[in-house]
Design a protein around this nucleic acid. Structure first.
Length: 495
RNA sequence: GCGGCAAUAGUCUAGCGGUAGGACACGGGCUUCCCAAGCCUGUAACCCGGGUUCGAAUCCCGGUUGCCGCACCA
């Protein structure tokens, strides 16, 4: 019998398994690789696709619509968004202790090293955005024309949504609040990408932008539904601990109901795809670590056995920063007619135009994939053997089921292939395997997280029933072939 | 970016100046009526570029990648 199963101590094993079984490969490997770039192999791509699909459906159910915007944008977009200024920086380095300082942090090359008092030298300019050229620059060496043709790969997907705000508002028939989502690549030329999928130069983000009347932020229509959920909060000031969302909002730890609601939704989604709740906490940014656009920000952090606490989702209150900035830079009206603000005794009934505020849950999909891989891997002692199991939730498992003939005999093989094809034809993504012993084949599937194995034996040939073996319990049930599809579908979509 | 350590089949590793070996995995065959069994058999590797040497996987230099620490992470 299986023991309860233990976690791998360091989390090292998952990197090896992910490489070997085709989840995750270092990009450009045959040319020596490049730091910060990973490719998803066949199983990794399936897993990622299922996570993205789960995320998409989750927010579509909230009534949000998805859009898809460009990865490259002209310079002026990032002048307006503030990324050009915040992402480009001059740096100095200490000749003596090699400490590295950003000029914007107030350390100048004429000064002495704050660490050791050594002499400083210029370390050059660095820009976290990848720069490119759009079209053929006109005007030769003319600086203005050169700048005009500058383009950048987006460092977040959000801007594409802000840029389309007017259109989106119109699409939503001029009513607030509404939400828009986008899943896509973002690019940051990190100084030292490291730690597997945790810091990449090209990565996938899933972002939701919720536009709300600032006067309504403290009043989310569905707050009731989530208010009693308990989460672990680490506020920037004061004690950390478990609190209900309602407590957190009432006591001012979380600034408003909208932020509280979306923090709760983040927790709900992560739980749904299988991130264990006891490895999650919500940590508030300190003032000095906040992004330039944020007025408040909470990170959902996952506790990695290997790397410690790491951010996997950020929920930011961006205020009106982005819309106001794009409004003034592009000379576009981003205002919305708010609700009537009629004060008692006043005759005035003009609808004031307001700039909506933005609440933004921003998911790092690759980091979530890492968290899922690491937290799903269990090693169990089964008899004398160790069994490695990826306990993925059914909803995200790359492969739903595998079909085996019990023995490597023609009559069983042809029946098994028949069942396999039947399931594939029914759009159920199954694998077929007849190599090695049945136990070996079960283990292969355990290691890639396949929830069910369907085995064709001699009884099948007599009465058209098969066994379905469940991954975590290793228990089997016998079901008629005609009912496999229903049995799998019921399981697959339920949990 | 800085410093330390490392890099050998798909994976883990032995070899540390002279024929690259093992284990697991994988393929083929036999066996096997349900959990990595056994037997036979096969495929498969010295990160890249220079240097030293009669001879380099091994020593030296540079690069790349990975791990750890510092810095960075809007």
């Amino acid at each position: 019998m299986a023991s309860a199963g233990s976690k791998e101590g360091s989390g090292d094993g998952i990197a090896e398994l992910a490489r070997r079984r085709g989840f995750l490969w270092l990009a450009f490997e045959i040319y020596g690789g490049a730091a910060g770039f990973y490719d998803y192999g066949p199983l990794g791509a399936l897993l990622k696709r299922r996570v993205e699909e789960a995320w998409r459906n989750f927010y579509l159910k909230e009534g949000f619509y998805e859009i898809e915007t460009t990865n490259i944008a002209p310079r002026e977009i990032f002048e307006a968004s503030g990324h050009l200024e915040s992402f480009t920086d001059r740096a100095v380095v200490c000749k003596h202790c090699k400490s590295f300082f950003r000029v914007s942090e107030g350390v100048d090359v004429r000064e002495k090293c704050p660490e050791c008092g050594g002499e400083l030298e210029n370390a050059g300019e660095f820009n976290l955005m990848f720069q490119t050229r759009i079209g053929v620059p006109k005007g030769g060496r003319d600086e203005g024309a050169q700048k005009k043709s500058e383009g950048y790969l987006r460092p977040e997907t959000a801007q594409g949504i802000f840029l389309n705000f007017q259109r989106l508002l119109r699409f939503n028939r001029d009513k607030l609040p509404f939400g828009v989502i986008q899943i896509g690549k973002a690019y940051r030329n990190e100084i030292s990408p490291r730690k597997s999928l945790i810091r990449l130069r090209e990565f996938t983000m899933a972002e939701a932008e919720v536009f709300v009347d600032p006067g309504e932020k403290s009043n989310h229509p569905r707050f009731e539904e989530i208010k009693d959920r308990k989460l672990w909060f680490v506020p920037s000031e004061g004690e950390e601990g478990e609190k209900s969302i309602e407590e957190a909002v009432r006591s001012g730890i979380i600034a408003n109901e909208y932020l509280g609601y979306h923090i709760a939704k983040v927790e709900e989604f992560l739980g749904r795809i299988g991130i264990p709740q006891d490895k999650l906490r919500f940590r508030q940014h300190r003032q000095d670590e906040m992004a330039h656009y944020a007025r408040d920000c909470w990170d959902a952090e996952f506790f990695s056995e290997r790397y410690g606490w790491m951010e996997i989702v950020g929920v930011a209150d961006r205020g009106d920063y982005d819309l106001s900035s794009h409004a003034s830079h592009s000379n576009t009206d981003m205002g919305v007619h708010g609700k009537l603000q009629v004060r008692e005794g006043e005759a005035e009934k003009t609808k004031a135009k307001i700039i909506p505020h933005v609440i933004e849950p921003s998911y790092g999909i690759d980091r979530i994939i890492y968290a899922l891989l690491e937290s799903s891997l269990y090693e169990e002692q089964v008899g004398k053997e160790k069994r490695k199991v990826l306990r993925f939730k059914n909803e995200i498992a790359p492969i739903i089921a595998a079909v085996f003939p019990l023995l490597n005999r023609d009559e069983l093989k042809s029946k098994a292939k028949e069942v396999f094809q039947q399931l594939r034809d029914a759009s159920i993504f199954v694998e077929y395997d007849d190599s090695g012993s049945i136990g070996r084949r079960y283990r292969r599937q355990d290691e890639i997280g396949t929830p069910y194995c369907i085995t064709i034996d001699y009884e099948t040939l007599e009465d058209d029933t098969v066994t379905i073996r469940e991954r975590d319990t290793m228990e089997q049930v016998r079901v008629p072939i005609a009912e496999i599809k229903e049995a799998l579908f019921a399981q697959y979509h339920m949990d």
